[in-house]
Write a protein that binds this DNA or RNA. Structure first.
Lengths: 234, 234
DNA sequence: TTTTTTCTGTTCGCTATCGCACACAACGCC
DNA sequence: GGCGTTGTGTGCGATAGCGAACAGAAAAAA
């Protein structure tokens, strides 16, 4: 697998000093993540860490009687497997590929070696871990207080930012799991947004038509999380 | 301030090797935390880290238009200020003393020194950070899916475990902020629990009467978070 | 083209929670 | 003991979201 075949767009990797990055490179393996693949299962060992380039991965908690609830969304700005950086080898959440694309991955054992070796890598990852905690926290509040429509808008915008495209593939059923509501709730909310000409969709394909006004329709959590990531440089 | 006046019951500190602990001790200062005190404000610098003994501190996110929402509860099993361990000097949340009691505190600068020096301390704190992330995640799901009554029960049990007492002081108004609901919602839920003889309360004082059945009335999140902390040894 | 699968839209009654407003009761202080 | 403060109980209509079931439409497969 030729590493240079895939452009490395991941911000965490990109922000490393040249030397540290060069050291990391041989252990990194480009992979294509396919929509719907499960990368981590709760309570299962973490085999690889992933640094998404243009792929998108959701962190989900499972609650009995419900299918899922998204607590975090990870794209080029982050990584999967921060647990390892905290000395824990098992994932507390499910990680589900939500947008196909490429990522760099590394075996956990190798990652731990590099992690111990490179202070710059440690610093970047701890910084990102903090941003992720903040994101989870904000999501918790958002899920409690905001209506489905605003949360849907937020989700679409966050996805857009990470895949850098106005159109992406996903079903209302899937969205319902992310938001922790029934599919009907998504149908209703999406219908409203479509009426306002903010988005359009047809069978598993959603397109953002009017980003600006979509931001107006969504809750402030979007801005808050965005600022957080920008401030912390990830 | 004589350090030996306060028995150090904090699990994080207690689990350190003797030598590491001895090194830490001179920097630790016993303090009494008073109910209602705010220790951290969102986006403000962290001046001290705290290791609660028998005190209890809530982590709250603020959402415009709502007073608060608790995302984490910290007692003897943990610490305040994990952000520092991740290289970030500002708190993303508000920290509010929820149960009066003692804690050990340390200046942030001093803490950073010790943190860099002691691998055992680092490991403990990273481990706890992971448990805290899991707790926040679980809380997020719980706030989304479970009814007020179950969440109230969970909250009371978690508090009980941390202060090691069946009775504690708090108002329904306060509980409402924690749970992110109106006070009326708490009145109703608490009323139901009292009718079932699981708790009793009078003006700011709540007492758990029947712990066993209170566990039955609460959501499984209680057990999940508890197991998580126990497994990770905190 | 026909058939099958997958995705979307709609309807129904029901419940938890909201927002607001007001009455009352306990405690603490003078 | 009286009085203000603080905490608790109640009642009202409004509404967002639930659970379940079914109909239709678009895409994929045969």
């Amino acid at each position: 697998m030729a590493t240079n075949k895939v452009p490395i767009a991941n911000s965490l990797l990109a922000s490393l000093p040249y030397k540290d990055f060069q050291h990391l490179l041989p252990g990194l393996e480009p992979v294509t993540l396919i929509f719907g693949t499960t990368l981590y299962e709760p309570a299962a060992a973490i085999k690889y860490v992933y640094f998404p380039n243009d792929s998108l991965v959701s962190l989900l908690t499972l609650v009995e009687g419900h299918l899922a609830l998204e607590v975090g969304l990870i794209g080029r700005e982050g990584m999967l497997g921060v647990s390892l950086a905290l000395g824990i080898g098992i994932s507390p959440v499910r990680a589900l590929v939500q947008g196909s694309g490429t990522a760099m991955r590394m075996k956990s054992s190798r990652f731990m070696l590099e992690f111990r070796r490179s202070p710059a890598l440690r610093q970047e990852i701890y910084r990102y871990t903090h941003a992720l905690m903040a994101q989870i926290t904000q999501t918790a509040a958002c899920n409690r207080f905001h209506v489905v429509e605003a949360r849907l808008a937020r989700w679409l915008l966050m996805t857009r930012d990470r895949v850098r495209s106005d159109e992406f593939r996903l079903t209302q059923e899937f969205l319902a799991h992310m938001l922790g509501v029934r599919r009907v709730g998504v149908t209703k909310a999406a219908g409203t947004l479509q009426q306002q000409k903010l988005i359009s969709y047809r069978r598993g394909r959603i397109r953002i038509l009017d980003r600006k006004n979509l931001e107006a329709a969504c809750c402030p959590c979007y801005e808050i999380v965005k600022d957080m990531h920008e401030k912390s440089g990830t």
